[in-house]
């Protein structure tokens, strides 16, 4: 059933006009007139945008386009100066991140935030919601949380198996490779069983060999019924995996549409060329991949 839902979402998108702020048939996240400025610098000025439920949507744009700031604002890690947005019909404007997560909107970070001195399994267990044992008093009485912990552990192990990390479950997360950390962060977010998962540059700093596997996992997340929104620089990835692409430049959404259409859009090419004279927009080999140094 998830599979067909995903296919349905994608097929619905086929009929949507490729223009900025266009309404979607079944929007999960809707943002209106979102503005964020730092002093005189307008970082985000988004008039209207909708994210289709069940799709993989990419948010792209040249450096300094305001993607990450927009992402931070939507996920509650930064405060908008103006605007409003709803998630699954509920207003979540400037809702703090932990509340958003409980409502089913979870994000990951560009520089992975795996919790180094916790084991891989503990990282996963931390993701589980509604834990009785996280109450300070209840935590002193293990019988109140043992069975829940066992169930969460089972679920965590299933996810770790899926992300090929099961054999590492007892290792410190700090001992994982960069790519494995990305996978762990994704798996950990899935422990919350979110409706929407927001990935901040999931390919940054990942070696090419692992990229294909990451792409598969992202598709897999959609197949399981979770909507994916991601910020990315890697054009190959955007083209391969996304159902819909939103392009930002100078804080505004300048284009959106299915990837093959957006890539041809003159405004998009101009925006990129303006920022990257020496790079070719659609060349293979990931020429637009930003060097991300951590």
């Amino acid at each position: 059933m998830p599979n067909s839902a995903a296919t349905h979402a994608v097929s619905e998108l086929a009929t949507v006009t490729a223009e900025p702020g266009v309404p979607k048939p079944d929007p999960l996240l809707v943002a209106d007139k979102v503005n964020r400025h730092f002093g005189g610098l307008v970082a985000v000025d988004v008039d209207h945008v909708e994210i289709q439920r069940g799709s993989i949507t990419a948010l792209i744009g040249p450096n300094g386009a305001g993607k990450t700031t927009f992402f931070n604002v939507l996920s509650g890690f930064d405060k908008a100066d103006a605007g409003s947005w709803t998630f699954a019909g509920n207003t979540v404007t400037n809702t703090p991140p932990h509340r958003l997560a409980r409502k089913g909107m979870v994000r990951t970070f560009q520089l992975t935030k795996s919790l180094s001195r916790l084991t891989v399994l503990d990282n996963m267990l931390l993701g589980a919601g509604g834990q009785t044992g996280e109450g300070m008093l209840a935590s002193l009485f293990p019988f109140t949380w043992r069975s829940q912990e066992t169930k969460n552990t089972e679920r965590a192990m299933v996810l770790l198996e899926r992300f090929s990390l099961a054999s590492k479950s007892k290792d410190f997360a700090g001992s994982l490779s960069g790519g494995q950390r990305k996978l762990l962060e994704m798996a950990r977010a899935l422990m919350l069983q979110p409706e929407l998962i927001m990935l901040d540059e999931p390919m940054a700093g990942v070696n090419p060999a692992l990229k294909q596997s990451l792409l598969d996992h992202i598709r897999d997340i959609r197949e399981q019924g979770t909507t994916v929104l991601f910020v990315e620089h890697d054009m190959d990835m955007v083209r391969d995996v996304s159902d819909w692409v939103i392009v930002m430049a100078q804080g505004q959404i300048i284009a959106e549409g299915r990837p093959e259409i957006v890539m041809q859009d003159q405004r998009v090419i101009d925006a990129y060329l303006g920022a990257h004279h020496d790079q070719e927009l659609t060349a293979s080999g990931g020429s637009l991949t930003e060097e991300v140094t951590s």
């Binding site: 730092f38 002093g39 970082a43 992402f71 931070n72 890690f77 930064d78 970070f109």
Partner: peptide, 13 residues
């Protein structure tokens, strides 16, 4: 005013 008298508000993330 957490950023101090003359400090700028910082960008997060």
């Amino acid at each position: 005013r957490p950023q101090g008298l003359l400090g700028r508000a910082e960008r997060v993330g």
